[in-house]
Nucleic acid binder design. Structure first.
Lengths: 222, 222
DNA sequence: CACGTTTTTGACCGCTTGGTAAACTTTACA
DNA sequence: TGTAAAGTTTACCAAGCGGTCAAAAACGTG
């Protein structure tokens, strides 16, 4: 039997740590891949496009990642993390009105500042989440279940209207991510008259009004 | 100069009307294409897949449509029409609460009954709306502008909170279409415990509560 | 500067894809 | 029933694709 020459490939699963250069190059590739995948979807993106966007040749990309799928998987894994982050802060002890308000703000900021990440995720889910099912049913579901309890506690304390907590969360996701995922449509309908910053502030003001009035019991009760 | 044999191809732009058979076959192809495109996106779909789903050979599909793009364009054009429909009914004379309520219902029903159409549209917009820009900036924008006036009239009459009409419409689109476009995610988070019908009713109840409480001034005023 | 290792690339392979050519089959109708 | 048009298919092509290979370039270290 031969000795295994497989280990020649650096990315084939070394125990040894990655060097600075490797980490930098992988970062470069993932950044380029985010551009290409979010703009064209998985099937629409080509390794050549990623390579060109990263300023290197195609085989060089495949030197750091075993396949196109591996690039995508690595990218999705990284994006999922940022994606979950804002939801984690939801805190029972605090005031639901301000918590919801700042959650909307945060998500809206992310739609503005990281539209490619949002679109990548949208694309993935739209195609049936072939790379993400485990994440959705695991980490994501667990976190949402936990936050649903927080919402129910607020409701039990009379601080929040008694609506379904899950659909509440869905509606915040939907409305905020809409501005990243459907950006072209939003621009087309609003016209080019308003700057990005103006659109952002209008959206924030509207969504806060909708959710606060919609969810927080007023003097007239639920 | 030769006479033009181009006209041999039936779909090349006859003045004469399409026959029953042609219409039926085109319908068959578009139905199959809706399946394939909505599940895989434009680049992810192949003419062969469409042909197989339509029960015919690839060249036969290309006999009725000049190219893959032509199939897609025809499909998008048709879907746009259904898509716009629910918004048209918005009526100044009627009560905003019931109008908004029934608009949400209608859009939610469409997300449930025509998820493929919704996903096709989402896919298209997500990719930058290469086939749809004219529609978005034309027909769609015009209709939304018109309905924004209706909303402003309601607001002037004190029947509706004074929020941005455009973002109001966006938020209804976003929340309702979310259930078609992000179906996998919704299912993953909610778990398989609930039937489709149950999910639908929960979503409808929640969204009505959110939008009615959020938009209609209560006894405590705006 | 010599030499083993890591990184990079041009050339290439096999497969899939959108689309075409041409022949065969069915249909419409005189 | 004969025949021209419409409809359908098999075979095929050229281009684009993901991925491999082997050799060259760059790098680190004695």
């Amino acid at each position: 039997m031969r000795a295994m020459e497989v280990e020649m490939t650096p990315r084939a699963g070394r125990t040894q740590r990655r060097t600075r250069i490797q980490e930098a190059k992988e970062e470069l590739i993932l950044e380029a891949a985010l551009d290409v995948f979010s703009a064209n979807g998985f099937r629409g993106a080509t390794v050549d496009q990623i390579a060109e966007a990263a300023g290197m040749s195609k085989p060089n990309v495949l030197y750091y990642f075993r396949s196109k799928e591996a690039v995508f998987a690595a990218l999705v894994a990284r994006v999922m993390d940022i994606w979950l982050d804002p939801l984690r802060v939801f805190d029972v002890e605090k005031d639901p009105a301000s918590e919801i308000r700042s959650y909307i703000r945060r998500k809206l900021e992310m739609a503005r500042d990281f539209p490619r990440e949002s679109r990548l995720f949208a694309n993935e889910v739209l195609q049936g989440a072939p790379n993400t099912e485990a994440f959705l049913k695991g980490e994501l579901k667990d976190l949402v279940d936990e936050k649903a309890k927080v919402i129910r506690a607020w409701q039990a304390a009379g601080k929040l209207r008694k609506v379904d907590p899950y659909h509440l969360i869905f509606s915040i996701w939907a409305t905020t991510q809409h501005y990243a995922d459907f950006d072209v449509q939003v621009r087309a309908v609003l016209g080019e008259g308003l700057s990005g910053e103006g659109r952002f502030e209008d959206a924030a003001r509207y969504l806060e009004a909708l959710f606060i009035n919609g969810l927080i019991p007023g003097r007239d009760g639920a």
